[in-house]
């Protein structure tokens, strides 16, 4: 169901992921928006703050909770030309995580840089 826009307008899209990957459907369905949105040739960035940083945690295994392990999809985002992933340093640190614990390449930025990223974005999805 690929849809295209003929307007030629390119906006700065920012997907802010704030929630843990499991427990609610928000993170999973957010990723579905990112994948569909990738077809629209917009300027896309993803931000991970608060419990959202857990979405990128390596070696997730959801077999015991009978849900889809969608964390593997993050590694495929590059193929969709979604390459700008930003993780807030304070969120990582306060959860005892390091960049090495993450499954994909990201740019770790501090909260003031995150604020700037949000301010500079034109269309913000907050999941």
């Amino acid at each position: 169901m690929e849809e295209e826009l003929e307007s030629g307008v390119v906006k700065k899209f920012l997907y802010i992921n704030r929630r843990a990957p499991h427990g609610t459907v928000y993170a999973h369905e957010a990723l579905e928006v990112v994948l569909i949105g990738a077809a629209f040739e917009q300027d896309v960035s993803l931000a991970f703050i608060d419990d959202g940083v857990f979405q990128l945690k390596k070696d997730q295994d959801t077999s015991e909770i009978n849900t889809k392990n969608f964390s593997k999809i993050f590694a495929a985002l590059e193929m969709y030309d979604v390459e700008k992933l930003y993780v807030e340093r304070e969120s990582l640190e306060s959860r005892g995580l390091k960049e090495d614990d993450l499954s994909v390449d990201v740019k770790v930025i501090d909260s003031s840089e995150m604020k700037k990223l949000i301010t500079d974005s034109e269309v913000i999805f907050n999941f």
């Binding site: 169901m1 849809e3 826009l5 307008v9 899209f13 949105g37 629209f40 917009q42 269309v123």
Partner: peptide
């Protein structure tokens, strides 16, 4: 489809 949401953003 979700494209309708992206289009709304644009």
């Amino acid at each position: 489809g979700l494209g309708q949401l992206i289009e709304a953003g644009v």
